[in-house]
Design a protein around this nucleic acid. Structure first.
Lengths: 243, 243
DNA sequence: ATTAATTTGTTCGTATGTATA
DNA sequence: ATATACATACGAACAAATTAA
């Protein structure tokens, strides 16, 4: 007798979970729609109400439903970003930091190239705004440098690159950026901290440096592939040593 | 009084969930380790056992723990792939199919380029194997073409590109591929079906075509960037019309 | 503005199936 | 084979939040 065969255990709440997941997948339960109450479901499935609750908890965990106390449970529009935000700390690792360098030099450049073809005027303006935001925050460094300002700079930096993803009008690139967001955040934090320390200690005047974000903006606007590529390369090459 | 302020609701199971999530994040509960039993946790938290179970269900849903009947609940190594597999159908959309074309022309090429620098001998051999697998399956088409063989071909195609991701030794690229896997699958399915139909009806002898996967393999092996790029471009340009 | 009905949140108690020593 | 620890599932009950009469 093959005792190493997978025995199909009951696991009631698992079955209920799969059923409800399929109901959402097949649009039987549509987005923003209220699903049947827990008692209704427990009756129609012929299981205990708490078993239903188990399944609903699981659905809520992956962002498929949202349940409101005293009201009911509603099907939620799936958000890739929300899910990644929730779990990114669990796949974050030091090796990923090393991978960010290659990511920026390849995927981000490709993304910017797509942005040249697909971006709208409004999106370009928004990008310019974000670049100016960044520059303005940078100017505050000599006077009021602290951890808070450092984080603000990193966030503004990320916002710029996220905007380029949006401008590519390719959802996959936006998703990739979300996946890489956590490592990029840590990467930028290390780099920026080091650069600012050098700046303040050795009294190098960095304000005179042409801000490369601005160059990225201009080259996308002017559809200048080569200048854009070089801007990105300078951006990452200026700070190769992560460790 | 600011009544629009976010009121911190109780939501016991939510709090327990957050606590346990942090315990895993901070390596207080390590991977493969058994967490305290439900009764123990319910006692130390001062809540009911079922409330603990709610939280455990949520942790299980995002792949942080695995619970074995009659044994206990164990912390699991987080798997990005498993999570994406579970939810990819929920972010899959027709627009994503259009994005696959640009993905292959940019990210995959960049990935292959990294593979030239980082791939090991064993990985190259494995890639050759997968290419041969694909070619062999392709030769079966004229005699025994059906839905099953079509899916087999698509899966073997995907396996090749996944191997290139592995060879890049950049985890981010592997993650990206996982995210794009579902759209790529549908994309390839449509394209291959159309190509095979043309092949069989118009009796074009496609077996004589040089398989481009083989070219990708050779160019990675020989570190021939230009040939590699052209192979990818031919691969996607040969079938631009998705719809 | 109050009340009543509905729905989710939480608890207790109990019984059962499973794995391990 | 037995005992123990543990997760699974059920039923009943009450608390708390929301909605509508």
């Amino acid at each position: 007798m093959a005792s190493d065969m997978k025995i199909k255990r009951s696991l009631v709440h698992e079955q209920v979970f799969e059923y409800m997941k399929n109901a959402i997948k097949n649009k039987q339960w549509k987005v923003n729609e209220k699903i049947p109450s827990e008692v209704e479901l427990s009756e129609s499935f012929g299981v205990n109400r708490l078993t239903i609750r188990m399944a609903i908890q699981r659905l809520g965990a992956i962002g498929l439903v949202e349940t409101r106390h005293g009201d009911g449970t509603y099907v939620k529009e799936f958000s890739f970003t929300d899910l990644i935000d929730q779990v990114s700390v669990f796949y974050m690792s030091p090796e990923l930091l090393d991978n960010v360098y290659e990511f920026r030099k390849t995927v981000e450049v490709a993304c910017a190239r797509l942005a040249m073809d697909h971006a709208t005027e409004e999106e370009l303006e928004r990008l310019l705004e974000l670049c100016n935001d960044y520059e303005q925050a940078k100017r505050r460094v000599p006077r009021e440098y602290n951890e808070e300002l450092l984080e603000e700079l990193v966030n503004k930096d990320i916002a710029i690159h996220q905007q380029v993803c949006i401008m590519s009008h390719n959802i996959l690139f936006s998703y990739f950026f979300e996946v890489a967001r956590e490592p990029i955040y840590h990467y930028l934090r290390v780099i920026l901290k080091k650069r600012i320390d050098q700046w303040l200690n050795e009294k190098v005047d960095v304000t005179s440096w042409r801000d490369l974000h601005q160059v990225v903006y201009e080259s996308i606007r002017d559809k200048d592939e080569e200048r854009c590529r070089q801007a990105y390369f300078q951006m990452v090459d200026r700070n190769v040593e992560v460790k």
